[in-house]
């Protein structure tokens, strides 16, 4: 357990480093939902190549590492209805709120943005409530 915390903190530093590179070199906020969402709703087509390059690195490099490691189980549920509902909620929610864990959580809190802090507190509380409801009351997940 404590080893997980150390890996968590170390991985967090690397995530923050990634955000720092994207901010200081490219001048952009590293928000995963915004980078994808801008491509989906065309609002980000002006810098599509930059977005696609970021996403290519994000998809392919962990993919290559896992391939070399010999596999990785991310323990995703095999309940397809749950997966679809989750994906829809994450897609709609992050675009309504203009951000997710990386944009509001990492990039927003670190600049003491009131919106980032409010969004992060809200999605963690909502996630906790959903977990209580769907896991402990309904038993669906």
């Amino acid at each position: 357990m404590q080893q997980d915390w150390i890996f968590g903190f170390a991985g967090g530093l690397v995530i923050g480093l990634a955000g720092a590179i994207f901010l200081l070199v490219n001048g952009r906020i590293m928000g995963a939902s915004g980078l994808i969402g801008g491509l989906v709703d065309r609002s980000g087509w002006g810098n599509a190549a930059e977005r696609l390059s970021f996403l290519a690195g994000l998809i392919l490099v962990p993919g290559a590492v896992v391939l070399l490691q010999g596999g990785y189980d991310n323990h995703l549920t095999d309940n397809l209805a749950v997966i679809v509902a989750a994906g829809l909620l994450v897609g709609v929610g992050t675009r309504l709120a203009n951000g997710c864990t990386s944009g509001h959580g990492v990039c927003g809190i670190s600049r003491l943005s009131l919106r980032g802090i409010a969004a992060t507190v809200t999605f963690i509380l909502a996630g906790g409530a959903a977990m209580l409801f769907f896991r402990h009351l309904v038993g669906a997940i």
Binding site: A32, S33, I36, H75, L76, T77, V82, I83, A85, A86, G87, L88, L89, V90, G91, V92, G93, T94, R95, L96, A97, N98, C100, T101, S102, H104, R115, A118, A119, T120, T122, F123, I124, L125, A126, G127, G128, A129, A130, M131, F134, I141
Partner: peptide, 19 residues
Amino acid sequence: LIVGSIFFGAGWALAGLCP
């Protein structure tokens, strides 16, 4: 911001995945 974050949090919990 608030409604979106509530939706997102619920979806995040359901599958354990964010973007």
